[in-house]
């Protein structure tokens, strides 16, 4: 429709400021800096904030949030959203405690069942969203209901007396250690997950296809990437990661219930957004992980200052709004004609 060529970026000489803004785009410097600053504020203003015990607690909470937000990060990278994460966490926790505590299945069978269940559900999310062009928001919302429902059906309504494996709970006890290290295993698991996901995103063909699909599904198609497969795998992976979080959470809480995962949906989404992963294929999991830590530290400080849960929500919403104001605004319609 227009005679004009798209504006071409010039190769300008990489001045110092230029190079600085470029590395800001590439590495989560702002998030890391914010984390350090906020942490220091906590140390300076709150007694006992810098102690090992408090840090361990922060790390445990952040681990759950971070693992729960891993899938959302991948889904956001391909331009989708997964509203079923909370439900899948709840469902997995219910199933884990029921199959283990109620039916007495061995651990491995329990985990396999739960993870395959999640994989199928997530893959269906991705397939339906891509094949029919249905809004992933609604599709995953629906499949979330299905997940919780099926978990309830299987467990016959579930009862809180059913327990998850004992050793699972040990993974996230503050007093637990890992191979002699003074941190609970869940923190190590989370760090391992960060490494694995980052390697997947940066160094595997699948990772490159995820970014390409998110940057432009059309260009990806023209570069012969099967956008459908990418969606199926990414949504499948998202559910599997959520289920993983659910299993761990079942251990932490001792059992599962239908609302166990709900906070992790919205907080996880917030971590992805604050981390700077946008719906157009920019970002990575390290950013989300740092943001998860940042959010937990902010929460902890707010608690320390005596803010109630309600106040924290308000501050949270406003902070989030400010955090995203800078970089994800939509183009003017007038410019699209």
């Amino acid at each position: 429709m227009t005679d004009t060529a798209p504006a071409a970026a010039d190769t300008t000489s990489p001045t110092r400021t230029h190079r600085f803004t470029r590395s800001l785009k590439r590495y989560p410097i702002v998030q890391a800096a914010a984390l350090v600053v906020v942490f220091l504020i906590g140390v300076l203003t709150l007694d006992g904030f810098g102690t090992g015990r408090s840090i361990t607690n922060i790390l445990i909470t952040a681990s759950f949030l971070g693992i729960a937000a891993a899938g959302q990060t991948l889904v956001a990278l391909v331009g989708g959203i997964d509203m079923s994460i909370g439900a899948v966490i709840s469902a997995s926790a219910i199933l884990t405690s029921y199959l283990y505590g109620g039916l007495g299945w061995p651990d491995v069978a329990v985990f396999s069942f739960v993870l395959v269940f999640a994989l199928l559900l997530g893959a269906a999310n991705g397939y339906i969203g891509q094949r029919f062009g249905a809004n992933p928001l609604i599709v995953t919302l629906g499949s979330g209901f299905v997940a919780v429902g099926l978990a309830q059906v299987i467990s016959g309504g579930g009862s809180d007396s059913v327990k998850a494996p004992e050793w699972l709970g040990m993974l996230s006890r503050p007093v637990s250690t890992t191979f002699g290290l003074p941190v609970p295993p869940i923190v190590v698991i989370w760090i391992a997950l960060i490494v694995i996901v980052m390697v997947m995103l940066t160094s595997t063909p699948f990772g490159k296809r995820i970014y390409a699909t998110g940057a432009s599904a059309n260009a990806a198609r023209l570069a012969l990437i099967s956008v459908r497969w990418v969606w199926v795998l990414v949504f499948g992976l998202s559910s599997v990661l959520a289920a993983f979080a659910g299993i761990l959470l079942a251990g932490f809480a001792g059992s599962g219930n239908t609302t166990l995962g709900d906070p992790y949906l919205f907080l996880g989404l917030a971590a992805v957004i604050v981390g700077g992963t946008t719906l157009d294929g920019r970002g990575d999991y390290l950013r989300t992980a740092l943001a998860a830590l940042l959010l937990v530290v902010v929460q902890t400080i707010l608690v320390g200052f005596g803010f109630t849960n309600a106040d924290r929500q308000i501050i949270f919403g406003l902070l989030l709004l400010v955090a995203v104001a800078g970089y994800i605004r939509q183009p003017r319609l007038r410019d699209l004609i």
């Binding site: 798209p6 063909p205 490159k208 296809r209 970014y211 390409a212 998110g214 940057a215 432009s216 059309n218 260009a219 990806a220 023209l222 570069a223 012969l224 990437i225 157009d280 294929g281 920019r282």
Partner: peptide, 23 residues
């Protein structure tokens, strides 16, 4: 349309190059 149909802005030059021949 380079912007909409061929380049992947989040990827580097060499990654953009390699995307059809990842194997």
């Amino acid at each position: 349309d380079r912007r909409k149909a061929s380049i992947f802005a989040p990827l580097s030059i060499v990654e953009n190059f390699a995307v059809t021949t990842l194997r």
